[in-house]
Write a protein that binds this DNA or RNA. Sequence first.
DNA 1: ACATTGACCTGAGAGC
DNA 2: TGCTCTCAGGTCAATG
Length: 264
Amino acid sequence: MPELPDVEIFRRYFLSTSLHKKIRAVDIKSRDMLKEVSAEKIKSTLERNSFMSALRHGKYLFMETERDEKWLVLHFGMTGFLKYYKDLDHRPGHERLLVYFSNGYHLAYDCQRKLGTISLTDSPDAFIKKRQLGPDALNPDYSLESFAEDFRKIRGKIKSALMKQKYIAGIGNIYSDEILFQAGIHPGVQSSRLKKKDMENIYRQMNHVLKTAIEAHADPGRLPSSFIIPHRQEGDICPKCKAGIEKEKIGGRTAYYCPQCQKK
DNA sequence: ACATTGACCTGAGAGC
DNA sequence: TGCTCTCAGGTCAATG
């Protein structure tokens, strides 16, 4: 599930539920999801501490602690999400990290497939650099000029390029389909062969689609009816021209597109 | 150097 | 009902 809009919604959820509350205890339920940190280190950093802010870069969420200037870093894989709850009856099904606040509430990081990661860092910038993440897809400082120049040099297909986190961070399988659908570009086109106008189109739609998705709380049911996301299934029709939606494997992932609106 | 493939996990749904 | 197979909104290491 979690691409940039989803993680942005998680960030806002975290801000509205979990700041400035004393952390009574921390339970690491899946040690295999820890990356470059021990369970003991996470516990000693968070316990008796509290959270004071949060940042997002691409699909990563950074949560800053009040003391020690440490940041808990979560990646949500394909199935991760956060849940803040009091009553244990509301506990989600696959808790991997559980924070107990002294007010009796819990913040759970749930990740069924365990494809996400839990880390700790002194600096989000250093973390981003180390993981070789590109600019965040909604970073206003990442200009159309830079985007066009970068993507002209990439040899793969445009869909794969948009999903590559080292080129640009935050876009995954679902939103790359939407951006290309809105831009009217076939996902299998070579990035380097796109015209200046196509680049501009993709760049604008990338910003528009991601912002629109955040406004809709990354909830497919609340997206505009002109989006292809609710129609990403075989046998469905294009919301713009009513042609049948087609699918194709591109870079190992399933791309859905409209053969009429997105010609090669 | 760059692009593609398989592995990593777990569960839901389709088909028999 | 129960089995097997395929697929899933992600990434990383290994391969071509």
